[in-house]
């Protein structure tokens, strides 16, 4: 995100930050319900989706790079 390569991570990071920030007004209350764990879990899901997107983008660009074999003219 900070490298300017896509903003979708921002949409995952904001709720994660909000969940983590709950510990500022409610240090014990937020942590008792696992705010840090659920924040990490949400970030894990977001990053996984981003990595899947990278994987698909890599696959499609590789597919474009492979020349289509020409059928010999009989």
């Amino acid at each position: 995100m900070l490298t300017g390569e896509g903003s979708s991570l921002l949409w995952w990071s904001l709720p994660v930050l909000a969940i983590l920030a709950l510990a500022l007004p409610f240090p014990r209350g937020a942590q008792i319900y696992g705010n840090t764990f659920f924040g990490a879990l949400l970030l894990f899901i977001g990053l996984s989706i981003e990595l899947l997107r990278c994987k698909r983008a890599g696959r499609s660009s590789a597919a474009k790079a492979i020349p289509i074999p020409q059928t010999p003219i009989s």
Binding site: F44, S48, L51, L52, G58
Partner: peptide, 8 residues
């Protein structure tokens, strides 16, 4: 499994 599925 999610991690492995996402790995290129």
């Amino acid at each position: 499994i999610l991690f492995i599925a996402a790995m290129p």
